[in-house]
Amino acid sequence: MARLFGTNGIRGVFGEGLTLDFVSDMVSSLGTFFGKGPILVGYDGRESSVIMSKVVCASLSAIGLGSSICGLVPTPCLQFATKKLGYGGGIMITASHNPPEYNGLKPTAKDGVEISREDELTVEDIYFKKKWNTSNKPRRIGRETRSIRTYLDGIKSQVNLKKIKSSRFKVALDLGNGAQAVTAPVLCKELGCDIVTINDTIDGMFSGRGSEPTPQNLNKLSQAVVKSKADFGIAFDGDGDRSIFCDNKGKILTGDRSALLISRFLLNKYPKSKVVTTLNSTSAIEEIAERTKSKVLRTRVGSVRGIA
């Protein structure tokens, strides 16, 4: 079992369990595991994220790997850009939906997917044995300015642009003072949507409603949808890899309910398919899959590789 990695990378209270010395040694271990650069580095809006990004890049440089900082971006943006722009790996600095005093490291392989449980154990072995690489030639630390545009264009390539634009949706966005504030409004506008935003400024303390969107703290989103007569609403977490939806009447949909709606739509369109979901999601997904002769594969909780 991993001792440092959790369900989604490594997290801790900044300055306590997550010290800069720990970050430096762990990134040296991650860089040794990656073996080849450059590595793409991004971060969320937490107050400790910028200083951590400097330590991350310096540590990679010290072991002979180049890196590029793409700045404040959502986690999916960092992951997609890592693959699309040809990086050797990626490191996202975030504690996702955890409280503001937390931060963390989320490593991504060159294919844009988080490293596997087995790879996490390999990284931990390097860390505990202090067997990371060293180099007498520090490598370049650069800037990557293409990540957000690459991410937005990637999303648009997967949807029916003409149909969405012709629908002229009105969308309420609760950006949660988080990283999606730099991407979600831009995407919606490019899709021809009229938008209403709340909690739309980056704030590392997540003062608007906290960093995790739950049905209990999305009253303002519900009110915004009803007041503005929006077609639906979306709320994001701190690093923008989690979303909760709201219908046109202001009713917040749970994650399970949203997943079922999406699954039903996709399986009706593509029967005899496979659906991957976590062990803790609703069993109703099997009922939907059975109607279209599809198969459900259950995974461990978290976003790393591996089918349970």
Results as ranks from 00 to 15, higher is better:
83 K>P: 00
94 T>Q: 08
89 G>Y: 02
48 S>Q: 02
41 V>M: 05
50 V>H: 12
95 A>G: 08
43 Y>E: 08
91 I>D: 03
93 I>W: 02
98 N>P: 09
101 E>R: 15
59 S>T: 04
53 S>V: 11
61 S>P: 04
38 P>N: 10
85 L>R: 15
96 S>Q: 09
100 P>H: 10
94 T>G: 06
65 L>I: 01
48 S>K: 03
48 S>I: 03
68 S>P: 07
92 M>R: 06
84 K>I: 01
83 K>F: 10
89 G>P: 02
95 A>Q: 06
93 I>T: 00
93 I>K: 01
53 S>D: 10
99 P>R: 04
53 S>T: 08
49 S>R: 02
102 Y>M: 07
50 V>W: 10
87 Y>L: 01
97 H>T: 06
96 S>Y: 09
79 Q>G: 01
69 I>N: 08
41 V>C: 07
65 L>D: 01
70 C>L: 11
55 V>Y: 01
70 C>S: 04
54 K>P: 00
55 V>Q: 03
51 I>M: 13
68 S>E: 14
84 K>R: 11
84 K>H: 06
99 P>Y: 05
69 I>L: 15
83 K>V: 00
53 S>F: 13
60 L>A: 05
38 P>W: 08
67 S>G: 14
48 S>R: 02
92 M>H: 08
86 G>A: 14
84 K>V: 02
51 I>L: 11
59 S>Y: 05
67 S>N: 14
51 I>G: 00
71 G>Y: 15
38 P>K: 08
80 F>T: 06
60 L>P: 05
68 S>G: 13
65 L>V: 01
66 G>S: 15
85 L>Q: 05
56 V>Y: 12
78 L>Q: 04
46 R>H: 12
87 Y>V: 01
69 I>F: 06
59 S>E: 01
61 S>A: 12
56 V>N: 11
76 P>D: 12
77 C>P: 02
69 I>C: 12
71 G>T: 12
69 I>Q: 14
89 G>L: 00
48 S>N: 07
82 T>R: 12
79 Q>I: 02
72 L>K: 13
50 V>D: 06
95 A>P: 07
46 R>T: 08
41 V>K: 02
88 G>M: 08
57 C>E: 14
89 G>V: 00
85 L>H: 13
82 T>K: 09
79 Q>P: 00
81 A>I: 10
73 V>N: 13
76 P>S: 13
78 L>V: 09
97 H>F: 09
58 A>C: 10
89 G>C: 02
59 S>F: 07
92 M>E: 09
54 K>F: 15
74 P>R: 14
66 G>Y: 09
65 L>F: 00
83 K>S: 11
93 I>E: 03
